[in-house]
Every structure is written in structure tokens, then in C-alpha cells.
Design a protein around this nucleic acid. Sequence first.
DNA 1: TCAAAAGTGTTTGTTATACACCCATGA
DNA 2: TCATGGGTGTATAACAAACACTTTTGA
Lengths: 207, 207
Amino acid sequence: MPGRPAPNLALVCCTLVGGSLAVLTEDGGDRRQVSLPEMTLRADAALDDAAANFARATLGRAPAWIAQIGAFNETTLTIGYLVLVTVGTDAPAGHRWASYPKQPTGPQAPLLRSALSALRERLDREPVAFRLLPATFTLSELQALYELLLERRLHKASFRRTLMAAHLVEPTDAWRSEGRGRPAQLFRYAPRRRKALPRAVRFESLT
Amino acid sequence: MPGRPAPNLALVCCTLVGGSLAVLTEDGGDRRQVSLPEMTLRADAALDDAAANFARATLGRAPAWIAQIGAFNETTLTIGYLVLVTVGTDAPAGHRWASYPKQPTGPQAPLLRSALSALRERLDREPVAFRLLPATFTLSELQALYELLLERRLHKASFRRTLMAAHLVEPTDAWRSEGRGRPAQLFRYAPRRRKALPRAVRFESLT
DNA sequence: TCAAAAGTGTTTGTTATACACCCATGA
DNA sequence: TCATGGGTGTATAACAAACACTTTTGA
């Protein structure tokens, strides 16, 4: 007699392609719909280890970041993980980078919605932006990424001042010339411990 | 031959007892360790529905709030839910309110840690404080709850001004006299839709 | 030498904090 | 009438936004 269906593990692997958010999709099937990499969870497996191993096996290299986003109802119980991949990484064989769907459809739609909101909510708590970017990057690239994830324009001078005050990045001695215009200095992610000063209470986002 | 062990569903039910955070614990066993209500998840069950039903059955009434906090490794795969219970609700038969452990021990320790951090992280995104309080409350009670959850003192005048500017509460015509001192006006949670004004980018919490 | 993008100093407006004070009640 | 906790107005400080500007490159 058939046993209980085993829980699944699904990966929402995100990166940037051409200035837009992309998600790793398995080849084959309906090209208009995202098909996330999934695996069956072994009964005795440690969740986070299994997810990290599956992500490494799928991508062919260790991901830049991985975090659980929750449990979902699919045809079987599915634990979803958000995986961040450094920009410029090629899609592994049998996969491709699909543009992240604005309004996902299909059984994996809740997973895709949760992953994107988790990405946005963690933006000011975890260094997700710095995991998506390569080791060195320009401040304009960083700002463009924040604007993409926050879905709103940011003011250049304010963005830089706030960033510098947070002591999160340090300049390298390299510059990059990007076509016309003045070359941009490259920075690296180098957070400095500092006393976590108390934030004001925010009621704004409350409904 | 034995089948795969079924996934579990665990509830972290929180309320306030005597000005401190408390968690619902099953009677029996080690009184120095929290024992969360757990149930076996049916193969075809919808997660959120199953959790809501289990919470209602356990508490004897519908909870004020419920939200998934993630999947965990226990002896079996366990999906954890954070459940908020209005202050003053008695513990159901076979259970008691235990003071929320500062440093949880035992197999459910990761669940307890995640539930508390979820509660704190959602404080400025979801109306968790208003779910813990009864329908009407004084602003001092609300501020004390925020201070408890944020673990720091807040300035009275600032707290009220920010709260009023957010149009989250409205005064009732009832007042409560609490021993000596001027009676406090009672308020109710009555959020008014307003244009979500863009928050500044925050790098502070980033490591 | 012009367009384009990087980078910076100054001003302005908003908002949280701090302080001081008044109000209403029980003892 | 005094101590206690509720409630509020005003000043100060911190900071994000906006504006204006300089710098440096490719075409």
C-alpha cells in the first residue's frame, strides 16, 4: 500500500539579468510558466543542510545566500528556500534564467510570491543586495538594485550619505569606465560592527 | 514496514500575563521546559486551515492572530505557527501559561526562538500588538507592550504623536481609573487607509 | 566641446527626541 | 494637598530630500 507522499524541497534561485530580477527555471514544459527545481526530502534529512546541498548541486557551485521562506501546500507538502546567485552566473545545464513573474501562475505561484516578498522584507535586515552583486561594484549599481527591489526611485546623494554613514562598504582603488561619462569607483562589501542605535517605532506599514 | 513519519504541526501561542510575555505549555513532563501543543499533519490537509483549526480546538476559541513561522527539524518535520491570544484568556484544560523562556532548551528551542523573533520583526508590519491587547486599551498599556517587545524604553509624547499621526487608533468615550492618578482614556484599534508614504532606506540593521 | 554619468556641498523640510508643564484622581 | 500617573505644547536636534554644482570621461 502506498505510504504518505514525501515532503518536497523547492528552490527559488534569484539573480539579476540585464537589470531585471530573474528566477532559475527548469527547461521543458510550458515556457510561459516558471518551473522551480524541486527534490524529495529524505525522511531523516536536516532541512537547511539538504537545501544547501541541493542548491549547490543544482547550480554547480555554492550559492551566495540561502534562507528558508516557509512551508507550502503543493500536491505534496513543500518547503521553500530563497537562494541568491551572484549576478553573471550562467544557468546550469537543463535550466535557464526566466524573468521573475509579476503575477505568478500555477501551483508554485504562492512560493514565488513569498520568495519575492521575503527578498524585499529582508533587504534592510540581511545583506541580500550585496549577495546579488559581485565582490566589487559601483554605487550606481547598488542603488539601481535597491531601486529595483524597492520599486521606487532613490535620491543619489541621500543614498550615498546614508550608505557611508552605515560603514557597510569601503572603496577599492579600482575604477570602471562604462562607455561615456566619468568612471565610477568600485566598492566592496565590508561591514563594520557598530552599536545598533535604536530605531524609532514605525507604525506606517501597519494596516 | 514502517512508513515515513508524518509531518507535525506545532503552535507557539503567546499572550501577556502580568506584564510579561507567556507561551502556552502542555501540563505534565518537565515543568522547567516548555512543551508546545503539537499534532500530526494529515497527508491531504491544507496547512493554514489545519493550523487554524488546531489552534481553535486547543484554545477553545478562535485565536486573535495566526501566522506560519517556518519548517523545523524535530524528531519529525515540524511546521511552526505563531498564535496570538488576547490578554486575559485563561489557559485551556491540560495547559498553562508559562513565562516565555529567555534561552529556550530542548528540541523545541529553535521554534521558540523563531517565534519570538518573528513576533518582533512583524511588530512594525502587522498589528501584532493590537491582537494581544483587548478591544479597548489605554495608550500606556500599548506603549508598555511595545517596550516589552522591543526591549527598550520609549518616549511617551513621541510614541503618542507618532501613533496618532498613523491614524491607527481612535478614542472611545470610556475612561479607566487605575488606582491613583488621573484616569486613562480607552482607545480602540481602528486603522484608516492612508497613502503608504515611502520609507527611507535603512542600512542600520545590516551586518 | 558637448553629452553623459559620477560624485559632492548646501539648503530645506520633516520628524523624533527632550523638556517642561498642566490635568485629574485617590489617599 | 500631595503624590501619582495621564496627557500636551514647545524647543532642539537629527536626518532625509531636493537642489545646485563640479569632475571626468567618450564621442
